[in-house]
Nucleic acid binder design. Structure first.
Length: 494
DNA sequence: TTGTATT
């Protein structure tokens, strides 16, 4: 086993340079036809898989290993029926995982117990994953939930009711601690079709004596659905997701972040002499706005604070007029001076619009947040005119294909707002350079953000600028932690 | 709290 792994490690460079992914010159056209062939040229072994074979999901695969590299590793446990590395459907890029089906169910079980979380493939931080693919119903697609039973009905009664539609593998009445029926049951058939037939025939078909409504027959919740349901219930109880709780609705934190960022940018631009004092004033207003919102106060500082038609501070030097750091956020308001380059240049050199309104939809949180900024800016036409020129067109959305940038270009970000996804993360870091990828980690069971993620730039200077500007940036009650991503081999002394 | 990816 170990020797095989070493072989793989040594083979990496060759594989990478040859890069034969089987897709030829038109990635995307034949994305999934490159699985391990079924023993071509070896007619004596016509591959057949058991009826009860399990498709395995293989995770944590180095992206430079393809089917032929993986094959030897998995053949240890039995004859392989099919092995397919997952590739991006458009770019053909290796997704770092694969599907594997052995001819025999037993092989899959052996491979899973021998490999899952047991070994780490070269270059990976985490151990290999070997487990039944999500598509392998863990019986859930042939398992029924039966509700509105009579509490007197036994397993046998239920079996009798359902046996006409197929082979029943399992039948369980749900009971409370006292052993009394809860009036519902699980019935598992041998196949999905049988289960479906039972639903069609029995759901709502009759009302059991003592039941408040007609018989319920439906597919049982999957684990995922159960978890989601639980999470939603909890969230409901805790008053989360209540739009009124946050000034800007569910995306309040992001709107605030946008404003802070906008304010910072404007401030730095003003300092660099690119904008007139009016812009500085607007920047100051935005900072106040962001600060106000963070205190949970009304978000309507559309009225200049000191009345009159001349905003305060307009005749004063731009920089001193800007309220220094928004209270607690640890952000100077005059950030990116890294590399001896004026901030404004660092920010705009790439010609990227900091807040692009790409494919606007009403439901898009970015769009909502951006609309808020625009609305605010509209109150100050002079300043906004300047800003509009500074931030030209939205850039075309570059498809995310690359995962990591070069060394020194990859940031690890922690304490992200719960509602941030990949897109929001990217938006937040676009002002500092070319973001080639952004990834927020999501708990697969709950779909909730784990509040950390990665952003990759195409050059180290952008990454440094972003660290300078965004590390310690306060959003709500939290401050972002922004630092260089730990290199792959950290934690590995040898 | 460091790239988690499910045809």
């Amino acid at each position: 086993m170990y020797i095989k792994m070493a072989t793989l490690a040594n083979g990496q460079a060759d594989n990478a340079s040859l890069s034969t992914n089987g897709l030829g010159s038109s990635p995307g056209s034949a994305g999934h036809m490159n699985g391990l062939s079924h023993s071509p040229g070896n007619p004596s072994t016509i591959p057949m898989k058991d009826h009860d074979a399990i498709k395995l999901f293989i995770g944590q695969i180095p992206r430079n290993l393809d089917e032929k590299d993986l094959k030897p590793l998995f053949e240890e446990f039995g004859k392989i029926y099919e092995l397919t590395v997952l590739k991006d459907r458009f770019t053909g890029m290796h997704k770092g995982c694969a599907f594997l089906t052995y001819c025999e169910r037993e092989s899959a079980l052996k491979a899973q117990s021998a490999l899952h979380e047991q070994k780490t493939l070269p270059g990976m931080n985490r151990p290999i994953q070997v487990k039944p693919a999500d598509s392998e119903s863990r019986g859930e697609d042939r398992k029924l939930f039966v509700g509105m039973l009579n509490k007197q009905q036994s397993e046998d009664d239920v079996r009798r009711l359902f046996e006409a539609f197929g082979n029943i593998e399992e039948c369980t009445i749900l009971r409370g601690p006292d052993g009394n029926s809860k009036g519902c049951a699980f019935v598992k058939y041998s196949s999905h079709a049988e289960a479906q037939a039972a639903i069609n025939a029995l759901h709502g078909s009759q009302t059991m004596p003592g039941a408040s409504s007609s018989l319920v027959v439906k597919f049982a919740d999957t684990d995922k659905e159960r978890t989601m349901r639980r999470m939603q219930q909890m969230a409901g109880q805790m008053g989360m997701f209540n739009p009124m709780a946050i000034p800007f609705g569910a995306y309040g934190a992001y709107a605030q972040a946008l404003m802070q960022q906008q304010a910072a940018l404007m401030a730095s631009v003003a300092q660099g002499g690119y904008l007139n004092p009016m812009a500085a004033f607007a920047a100051a207003q935005m900072q106040q706005m962001a600060a106000l919102n963070m205190n949970g106060l009304a978000a309507a500082p559309m009225t200049p604070t000191s009345g009159g038609s001349t905003p305060p501070g307009i005749t004063a030097p731009a920089v001193p007029s800007i309220p220094s750091p928004i209270g607690v956020n640890g952000f100077t308001g005059l950030p990116p001076q890294a590399n001896g380059q004026p901030a404004a240049e660092a920010v705009f050199a790439n010609g990227i619009h900091p807040y692009p309104a790409q494919s606007p939809t009403a439901a898009d949180p970015l769009q909502q947040a951006y609309a808020g900024v625009q609305q605010y800016a509209a109150a100050y036409p002079a300043a906004y005119g300047q800003i509009s020129q500074a931030f030209p067109q939205p850039p075309p959305m570059i498809p995310q294909q690359q995962r990591e940038g070069p060394e020194g270009c990859n940031l690890f970000i922690y304490h992200l707002p719960q509602e941030f996804g990949d897109a929001e993360l990217m938006q937040m870091f676009l002002p500092f350079g070319n973001v080639i990828s952004s990834k927020v980690f999501v708990d697969r069971a709950t779909n909730q953000s784990k509040c950390f993620g990665f952003v990759s730039f195409d050059n180290p200077a952008s990454a440094q600028t972003a660290i300078q500007a965004m590390n310690g940036f306060q959003i709500g009650m939290k401050r972002l932690k922004v630092q260089l991503k730990r290199p792959k081999d950290a934690n590995r002394p040898y």
